[in-house]
Design a binder for these strands. Sequence first.
DNA 1: TTGTGTGAATCCCTTCACAGCG
DNA 2: CGCTGTGAAGGGATTCACACAA
Lengths: 192, 192
Amino acid sequence: MLESIQDDGGVTVSSEQLARRGHTTAAQVRKDLSHFGSFGKRGLGYSVDELRDRLRIILGLDQVWPVVLVGAGRIGSALFEYPDFKRRGYECVAIVDSNPEKIGRKWGELVIQPTAKLESLIKELCATLVILAVPASAAQLVAECSVNAGINGILNFAPVQLQVPDGIPVENVNLVMELEALSFQITRASKT
Amino acid sequence: MLESIQDDGGVTVSSEQLARRGHTTAAQVRKDLSHFGSFGKRGLGYSVDELRDRLRIILGLDQVWPVVLVGAGRIGSALFEYPDFKRRGYECVAIVDSNPEKIGRKWGELVIQPTAKLESLIKELCATLVILAVPASAAQLVAECSVNAGINGILNFAPVQLQVPDGIPVENVNLVMELEALSFQITRASKT
DNA sequence: TTGTGTGAATCCCTTCACAGCG
DNA sequence: CGCTGTGAAGGGATTCACACAA
């Protein structure tokens, strides 16, 4: 939703307007925002500029996050080329793959490294996030390796529930599950 | 989680075991399953085979879902090549793109079609799902076109909130948002 | 005895409603 | 006035606890 808030010096937006954009309710927007402080003006709404800046800080987008990409397959390359990535403060600082044919190839400025180097790369480059774009069978091992190296968060595309220590946030993107959610809803709706 | 349940004729699994795998609680598993009927055996647990079959039906996985892929870019190709896709009952029946250079190319057996044909393709092939792997600027238009053609569900990779009629399920996969969720959690944790 | 299925208690999130500030 | 911020109410989901079936 952030991307829809332009820099319009002085312009304000009401919780009602934000709610419409985000498919939610005005009360919900106000409650959520109030959770982080009260930066709206009564009778006016929220200053667009201030709102953007505050949310940037709350979401940690006021800094650059060094990311290591694990898996130089199709998903990996789709992510790597995704323009919003860098634009939003996520910088790919290393690419790792286990396939000997891919190791040594260059993607942009980066040379694909062997998986064996993952741990040392994370440490040396002070990477905070890893993106796991690897087969399910390899994901747990890579996750453990990353945690050992001191990673702060994991974005996991492999269709497995990773077992990681408490306190290491994991976000899962499971394409098949998304489709299953759709087929469930369709099936469900057609039975009523 | 389904993929972790093997065919082991006669073997049973307890809510406790399922809970561990799914990072949840035994009570949660029992409540969820009981919502669809009571197919566990007291003192034993759930028959793995029966559980799998029942869930397949509940999730609508006992049928093949014809899918149209819109956008033959990197994300599109990653999805198209994803082996679990077909294995789980999702069959790509058409590929559509707006780039004249891509139209006419073959991916496997399928020829990439122009976007103009989307509506007729959905109708002719009785597609139930569309996958939107297109830029944000094109997504809303494609969604509307798909809805007009009678689509049943949308898997949206574009970073926009699609406006679709009630009753058409939409699942969103927003890669940047997933990363933002991670950086938020990390930022949050480091402030306590 | 083991582990399900389920009411009851609890928690959390959403919605309501309105006091109060600009 | 208009719209935020927030207690209070409401509702849905999670957790507890236990009767009961195998």
